[in-house]
Amino acid sequence: MCYSAQIWAEHRKYVRAFGVEIDIKEYVKLFWQRNENDRIKVPKAMEESFTAPQGEDEAAIKSLTDAYKVQQADKLAQELFKQRKRLADAQRSLTAKTTKAATEATRIASTKIEWLLAKLADSRRTELKDSDSRIYPGYFAPVLIVENGKRLVRPMRYQCRPAGKPAAYDTRYPGTYNARRDSLEGFWKNQFGYTHGLMVVNAFFEHVSKPLKNASGAQTESVILEFKPRPVQDMLVACLWSHWTGDAGDDLYSFAAITDEPPEEVAAAGHDRCIIPIKPENIDAWLNPDPTNLAALYAILDDRERPYYEHRLAA
């Protein structure tokens, strides 16, 4: 599974590299919906790519993003006030009598205050870090597709909800951010050969189990490893996508990354799946699939880039 990835988040990079059009209306809709529902997640680097807007639509996105930042800062400030009051009340109780409840309240409030202060400081930060381009299941990311004969970049959610399925599919099948290669003609038969995309990735992250230090027996701990290709490169990760529409007229573009058996170094690090980076010369054939010739599509997946994946504990 590709639990997390570091991606190209800036839409203009796609324009420069692939000569694509931007589905700017879908970007506007995404940022408008996020202001109405803060459970919608967008990587910081993706929103910051609109700080110097070009045209009315990008200016609208910047305005929506600025309003969202104010909205979130207000929520954090309110929670900070609440936790500081909780801490003060607990400390007053402790001066009168030491109790387990007051001690625990002090600990919890102090931890939350520290987290909230860090979150507020991070929300004001303008200089981007690598982690600002990282996505997780449920996050939105730019996806390169072909529609009506033209290359297009559209924001889509990284967890595919196939067309025709109920919205509850998201919780029933939480792992649909990845599409196993051995399920392409089964679970993914309505997308494979029909709606293909590419996500540009330069690192991916996986949960693996490692033996506990100084522990006996079969005890393990879960750690997160960062895998980076060597030589350093941006990888064109093969994806499938779907356009879901609901009974109320709502809709969702979402996608999944195709995964396959891992190369030796990924398996040795403790993980059993790996994303598939296709070769640049196969972009057009992948994005314009022929459902009557699935063998050609499998051939593209086989004729993949094969970098060596170096790994380390994720920060």
Rank of each mutant, 00 (worst) to 15 (best):
C2A: 11
Y3D: 15
I7K: 01
E10N: 14
V15P: 02
A17N: 04
F18I: 09
V20R: 03
E21Q: 15
V28S: 07
L30F: 05
R39A: 14
P43Q: 14
M46K: 02
F50S: 05
Q54F: 11
D57V: 00
K62G: 00
T65E: 06
T65I: 11
D66I: 00
Y68R: 15
V70N: 03
D74P: 00
K75Q: 11
E79K: 08
F81T: 14
R86V: 04
A88L: 09
D89K: 13
A90N: 07
A90S: 14
R92G: 07
L94N: 04
T95D: 09
K100E: 15
T106L: 01
T111R: 15
E114S: 14
E114V: 01
L120Y: 02
D130S: 11
R134N: 08
I135F: 12
A141K: 00
N148F: 05
R151H: 05
R154I: 13
Q159C: 08
C160E: 12
P162K: 03
A167S: 11
T176M: 12
T176D: 12
Y177W: 09
S183G: 09
G186T: 12
F187V: 12
W188S: 02
F192C: 05
Y194L: 06
V200P: 01
F205W: 01
S209Y: 13
K213S: 11
A215M: 10
G217L: 07
E221V: 02
V223Y: 05
K228T: 15
R230V: 15
P231Y: 04
D234L: 13
V237H: 03
A238I: 05
W244L: 03
T245R: 12
Y253A: 12
F255I: 06
T259R: 09
P262A: 06
P263H: 08
E264G: 12
A267G: 06
A268M: 11
G270M: 06
C274R: 05
I278R: 01
N282W: 10
L294C: 04
A296D: 08
L297E: 06
R304Q: 08
